[in-house]
Design a protein around this nucleic acid. Sequence first.
DNA 1: GGAAGTACGCACCTCAAGGTGCGTAACACA
DNA 2: TGTGTTACGCACCTTGAGGTGCGTACTTCC
Lengths: 141, 141
Amino acid sequence: MATTTAAQQRAQTKADYDAFLAVCPSHKLLERISGKWVALILTALGSGPDCGGDPRPMRYSELSRLLAGVSQKMLTQTLRALERDGLISRTVTPTVPVTVSYELTDLGLSMYGLVRGLKLWAQDHMDDVLAHRASYDETTA
Amino acid sequence: MATTTAAQQRAQTKADYDAFLAVCPSHKLLERISGKWVALILTALGSGPDCGGDPRPMRYSELSRLLAGVSQKMLTQTLRALERDGLISRTVTPTVPVTVSYELTDLGLSMYGLVRGLKLWAQDHMDDVLAHRASYDETTA
DNA sequence: GGAAGTACGCACCTCAAGGTGCGTAACACA
DNA sequence: TGTGTTACGCACCTTGAGGTGCGTACTTCC
């Protein structure tokens, strides 16, 4: 058959789209930023422990205490991933027990700006969203 | 024992933090926006099929063809969730085969602005990130 | 008469993100 | 002697987001 069926056509289109998604920069950004602890870490490093100050380097144990819910494994894993992407820098000081501190790079600071934008939008509009959600559930139930 | 041990103290702090995360608006926003197809749908409805135009209502089948990778189940599920949150509106026209069209609400349009911000950042900085990632992998391997 | 479109619902399955728990080497403090 | 801290590595396990496939009720086109 020289003619392609509609099904074949759809499969091809879908494959093309998947390939597009695999290289799409926006998609990769969402993958990074949507990690469960990424935004929390960026915010901590970008605005200090009180979430209202200036960017400041922090130690591993300090982050661990601040983000009390994070497991050590996930904290390490997330920090490594952010360092890999050039968003934070890792500094080891060989004191008696080793001291490791993490700091936002310029690129990381720029991404923190994005996260802060998300936070501001959430503060402004998220209660609207939750109100809609509640009323939807009410009328549907 | 009247004194709390260090372990008990940590457990309490972690419980408090988990409770905080459960109601944190920013966290809820991230949960919504990081769905695999959410940003794609918002972008489609917010800037037309060519990703460069104006907001425009679209039919279910039109979205399905545009986002060629999405399964019918996920498309329906995501649209429902967005409708539940008051971000899009669903309109049913009882033609011969039913016609359903989806459109951004004002709230959804506002969230689309956020997504567009993410897209612009990605276009500007994501190759930096990927470059860092590649060089990190190179020196580590 | 078989294929295709319209907008889904439902049941089942996979896979990876994230969590849990244990071990470390060297030291301080009680 | 035992508990705590520092910054992890490693092995195992759970959970849920997302995917796959099938069915529908009606119609139109080739």
